[in-house]
Each structure stands twice: as structure tokens, then as C-alpha cells.
């Protein structure tokens, strides 16, 4: 279960993690708890897979080159192909989506030549064509994502049942 401290850490530090020698102490002072409590709460969040990391988000194409790639894979082969694709270190997000194009992933490479080599290798190894959708413009201003962590799963289901 998430404690009030876990929830504050999840929602308040997506954007501005302190850039000071003792960042966890700075957070602790801000929230009125101890540094040890903040450290163990973050360790718990990481251990239980509620956070992927405390780290940097690099905008697309600032370092290296990235593209979104989609593939249309027969259902029976989807999981196997997804795992093949996952093995490439250049692949980061990889999702199944409900569409004829059912496998979607982001590739990041050093340059266009590297990118095209990886795509050619993916096509050869999987035996399926790819569709490349590189970024042309980014309209989004990232303000972090405010999570509503107090609503229970049952409440969500009940509200959906009522509105359906």
C-alpha cells in the first residue's frame, strides 16, 4: 500500500528533483520527515516497481536520432516478435496496440545510418516490414503527470458502471 509519503514523492518530484548535494534531505525538510524516511520510501517505490527511476527525460532528437516504428504482426506471432524487438538495445518503449498495426516502439540511434541499419536488422530477423513515423514537431509542454492515487480500483469500476 502507498503511504502518504509515497504519494507525495510520486506526485511532487516528477519535474524538479532537487539539484543540491543532499537532494533527499532537501525533500525530507520540505515534507517534514527525515532523510532516512525519504530514502527508504524511494527504495520501496523502486523495489515494488511503482517508479522506473529518478532520472532525466531527454527530448527526442536532441542527442542522437529517434523514430516511432509500427509493425503489423499476425496475432499468433506477436509476443515472439515483440521479444525479438526488445532485444535491440536501441529500442526503448515497446507496446502492443489494438489495430492492424499492433506493435509500436521507439528506436533511438546515433544517426540516420545507424537507425536504418537497426530497422533493416529488425525486418530481417522478424520477417516483417516496418512503418517509420519520425517526429516532425512536438506540441507538448511537459508539466509532469498528476496522479490521482486516492481513488480505489473499485471506485473507478463503480463510476464506469454508472456512466455506461
Amino acid at each position: 500500500m502507498l503511504s502518504p509519503l509515497h504519494k507525495q514523492l510520486l506526485n511532487n518530484y516528477q519535474q524538479e528533483f532537487p539539484l543540491s548535494p543532499r537532494p533527499y534531505l532537501e525533500i525530507a525538510n520540505h515534507l517534514g520527515v527525515t532523510e532516512a524516511e525519504v530514502l527508504s520510501a524511494f527504495s520501496e517505490l523502486a523495489e515494488h516497481n511503482f517508479i522506473s527511476r529518478i532520472g532525466p527525460v531527454i527530448p527526442p532528437n536532441h542527442i542522437g536520432l529517434s523514430t516511432l516504428v509500427a509493425m503489423a504482426i499476425p496475432r499468433a506471432q506477436l509476443t515472439a516478435v515483440a521479444h525479438l524487438v526488445n532485444r535491440f538495445p536501441e529500442v526503448n518503449h515497446n507496446y502492443e496496440r489494438e489495430h492492424r498495426f499492433n506493435l509500436w516502439f521507439v528506436l533511438i540511434a546515433t544517426d540516420q545510418q545507424h537507425l536504418q541499419t537497426v530497422i533493416a536488422n529488425i525486418e530481417t530477423q522478424t520477417g516483417f516490414k516496418t512503418m517509420q513515423l519520425p517526429l516532425l514537431a512536438d506540441y507538448f509542454i511537459n508539466l509532469g503527470f498528476q496522479l490521482d492515487l486516492d481513488e480505489t480500483r473499485q471506485a473507478v469500476e463503480q463510476a464506469d458502471a454508472v456512466s455506461a
Binding site: L9, L10, Y13, Q14, Q15, E16, F17, L19, L45, H48, N49, F50, I51, S52, R53, I54, G55, P56, V57, I58, P59, H62, I63, Y95, R97, W104, N142, G144, F145, L147, D148, L149, E151, R153, V156
Partner: peptide, 22 residues
């Protein structure tokens, strides 16, 4: 602008945001 943000990267699905739509 090389770092867009530095902070906690949450796992939406684990935190109750089960539906992800493009």
C-alpha cells in the same frame, strides 16, 4: 534543453492508470 525534466519517472500502469491510448 538537453534535459527536459529531471525527476521521478512513474509507472502509470502499476499506479492504477491501466488504460493507455494513442
Amino acid at each position: 534543453g538537453f534535459i527536459k525534466r529531471l525527476g521521478v519517472i512513474v509507472k502509470h500502469r502499476r499506479l492504477g492508470y491501466q488504460a493507455n491510448a494513442m
